[in-house]
């Protein structure tokens, strides 16, 4: 019990700054506290610290602009991809016969489905990673709680009354009833996809983003502005093309918002990486030499 409590304490204390983390763990060791009481003490300190941070504007801004929208984006995308791939897998597994392995048409279809699934999952994983990276890069001070909320929303929102728009509910179509009648596809497949292709990359992105040097306030404001500007431009173009037949449907606006927000963190990461990569310097030098020549 004490070992588990101490393990949880050392994990929880990571929410504090490096100096304070050292001082707190040292104080606990010196006082001989390493059981549940130490865990309660550290939890109390982290809660007070986070409470103080949330008295300011920035964490709420991060919650509204990144955590909630991207939780919606990732939750919806991951469940849509999981449902779609569940149908494909069910089709191939249920109809599998070794004799088909020699059929070129069947193999082509299988290969195409495989590539489709791999690209969807890779895209989801990259979007999850970039969301975590952007969150850690832009709003580091409120990272612990916002990251926790993002993960919780991602994992549990779909299970506690979060209904997806009609376009994404593959499992509700009567034609797919056989697939989702299976306990594995109905209960286990989607959480597995969400965990592997969404949650793990997201946590990795948060870890990678937290290692980067903190951004200057001006850079944060610039990136946030670019994210919103991109969203506005995309929405406008999208609206012009779709307004004739679907502007009255709220699902359409939902889908547009998803597309906009899905693109934003990738752009944010791209801007940051572009600033830090060595080829940027080389390119600048070459440009300068060319202009001098």
């Amino acid at each position: 019990m004490n070992q588990i409590s101490w393990l949880l304490t050392t994990l929880l204390v990571r929410a504090l700054g490096p100096d304070e983390r050292d001082a707190v763990l040292g104080d606990l060791l010196e006082s001989g506290e390493c059981g549940p009481r130490a865990l309660c003490d550290v939890f109390g300190l982290v809660a007070r610290r986070e409470g103080t941070r949330w008295m300011r504007f920035a964490p709420w801004l991060a919650l509204v602009t990144i955590v909630i929208p991207f939780a919606a984006v990732l939750m919806t995308s991951s469940r849509r991809i999981a449902d779609t791939e569940a149908i494909s897998i069910w089709l191939y597994v249920s109809n599998w016969e070794w004799a088909r392995a020699a059929d070129a048409t069947f193999l082509n279809s299988l290969t195409a489905s495989g590539w489709g699934a791999a690209s969807s999952l890779a895209s989801l994983a990259f979007r999850s990673w970039s969301t975590g990276f952007a969150l850690a890069l832009l709003w580091r001070r409120s990272l612990a709680v916002n990251a926790f909320l993002l993960c919780c929303m991602l994992l549990f929102a779909g299970w506690f009354g979060g209904h997806l728009p009609l376009e994404f509910r593959a499992r509700d179509y009567s034609g797919n009833a056989a697939v989702f009648g299976s306990t594995f596809y109905r209960l286990f497949f989607t959480p597995a996809v969400v965990t592997l292709a969404c949650l793990f990359p997201l946590l990795h992105g948060i870890q990678d983003g937290a290692k980067e040097p903190p951004l200057h306030g001006v850079a944060v404001a610039a990136m946030a502005t670019v994210m919103f500007a991109l969203g506005a431009i995309q929405s406008w173009f999208w609206w012009r093309h779709r307004t004739l037949y679907s502007a009255m449907s709220w699902q359409v606006w939902w889908l547009a918002a998803l597309q906009v927000y899905a693109a934003a963190p990738i752009l944010c990461v791209g801007m940051h990486v572009r600033e830090r990569f060595p080829w940027r310097r080389t390119f600048d030098q070459m440009t300068k030499l060319r202009s001098v020549g």
């Binding site: 050292d22 001082a23 763990l25 003490d41 809660a47 610290r49």
Partner: peptide
């Protein structure tokens, strides 16, 4: 409570009533 102590230390430091700094590591404290 540890949380109460550390947040109070922060508050007192912000008010300029105390100064804090990180000291040396000791074996007693791991």
């Amino acid at each position: 409570a540890l949380g109460a102590l550390y947040t109070t230390l922060d508050r007192l430091e912000a008010k300029g009533l105390i100064e804090t700094w990180m000291g040396d590591a000791t074996p007693l404290r791991g």
